[in-house]
Simulated scan of single mutants.
Amino acid sequence: MRVTATGLRVTIDGHVILDDVALTAEAGAVIGLVGPNGSGKSTLLRSIYRAVRPDRGVVLIGQTDVRRIPARRAGKLRAVLAQDQELGNDFSVRDVVALGRVPHQGLLDRDTADDRHIVACSLERVGMTWSHSRLFASLSGGERQRVLLARALAQQAPVLLLDEPTNHLDIGAQLELLDLVRGLGLTTVCALHDLDHALAYCNRLVLLDGGRVVAAGGPVEVLTTQRLAEVFGVHGAFTTHPLTGRPHLVFTALDPTSQGRPPGVTPPSSALRTPPHDHPRRECPPDEHE
């Protein structure tokens, strides 16, 4: 199912977080939201799944305005894997995944045989069947993310929204999770910190900076050398990954003195905050705990 956001503006505590932002995710595509910290990626996702109310603009899933429908109906249209989701220590894995069935149930309904079957199938799909009776809190970070993905799958929603899903995971767990997500066939919008992951796993990217869309399109077209320098403050170049054969990004720091910087690129202000050369270098004090 298609996701469309148009003209989104979000102001929080008097600060403009998103300004006239648009996004289109075609049915079955994986769309990556990329940009530096504070660029608006998470706020854009939260606007799509109704955790943030925009000052203006519209979010459609299919032809449905997500702000004009009840929460349970919205839960049938999109599933969310947010950052740092905390659950009680007494929840079993099966209990966590069963929460994905809530949008399909009445207020006092108990799980049906169909619900239990869907929960079991969702756990099987993410390779976590073995853990169904384990406490959720006892699992590793990568295992917990798989279980939360299973909960999202149990919602049987056509749209999946993920906010930095690989945070705090080791590299193996990161790749396993992204492989799972890419293989689901759902319309997926995913905020990603790692640009190489975005390049490898997304059909299209939306590059945000300062709450505005800088570029949108294919990953190679969006992550140009010029934009990497201007938005992220790094030199970037494409090469071929020796193991996968896919395009691969390599980086080095942007020299604030302009050596090697692409012509016409002004380094980010943070790169220019170097101490004056005529000040003596001060050593850090010793650790008082040593």
Rank of each mutant, 00 (worst) to 15 (best):
G142T: 09
T240Y: 00
G142Q: 13
H132L: 13
S138L: 05
L44H: 07
D65Q: 07
L223M: 14
R227V: 14
P262L: 15
T24F: 02
S270N: 01
G75E: 09
A154C: 08
G75H: 08
D255P: 03
A154F: 03
D13N: 10
G7Q: 09
L107A: 12
P70S: 01
D84F: 06
T252I: 01
Q226K: 14
L180W: 02
R94Y: 13
G38Q: 02
A98H: 03
T240D: 10
G264F: 15
L184W: 07
L175Y: 15
P268W: 12
D65S: 05
A137T: 13
D65T: 09
T252K: 02
A29R: 13
S39Y: 04
L177W: 01
P36G: 13
L18K: 08
R46C: 01
Q155S: 04
R151C: 02
R94K: 15
T239G: 08
R101H: 14
L195N: 08
G32D: 14
T6P: 01
L123Q: 02
R9M: 06
H289E: 14
A98E: 06
L205C: 07
L228Q: 13
P103E: 09
H132W: 08
P262E: 14
C202V: 06
L99F: 15
G14H: 01
A200D: 11
D65M: 11
D209I: 03
A120M: 00
D20Y: 00
L44A: 00
P242N: 15
V126C: 02
T274D: 05
R9C: 06
G38K: 03
A216M: 11
E290S: 10
V265W: 11
Q259S: 10
P103V: 11
H277W: 12
S270A: 05
R73Y: 04
P285C: 01
I69F: 11
G218N: 07
G75N: 04
D196T: 10
L207F: 06
F136Y: 02
L208H: 07
A98T: 08
E86L: 07
L184P: 11
A152E: 11
L81G: 08
R144A: 05
V93K: 00
I118A: 13
P70T: 03
A237V: 14
G62A: 03
S133C: 08
P242D: 15
T257Q: 15
S47L: 06
V34M: 12
A198M: 10
Q145H: 12
Q174I: 04
A74F: 01
T187A: 07
H132T: 13
P242I: 12
E26M: 05
A229R: 14
I31C: 12
G106Q: 06
D115R: 00
G210A: 05
H241F: 01
L184E: 12
H104D: 11
P275W: 08
M1W: 03
V59N: 02
Q145R: 12
E26Y: 07
A152Y: 10
R101P: 11
A237I: 10
A27V: 09
D19E: 02
P256N: 07
T64S: 12
D55I: 08
R116N: 14
T266Y: 09
P158M: 09
A173F: 14
H241W: 05
S131I: 00
L60V: 06
C121G: 07
V213F: 04
V159Q: 10
D115G: 04
T225W: 14
V213N: 05
S270P: 00
H235Y: 13
R50C: 04
R72G: 06
A51Y: 07
V147F: 11
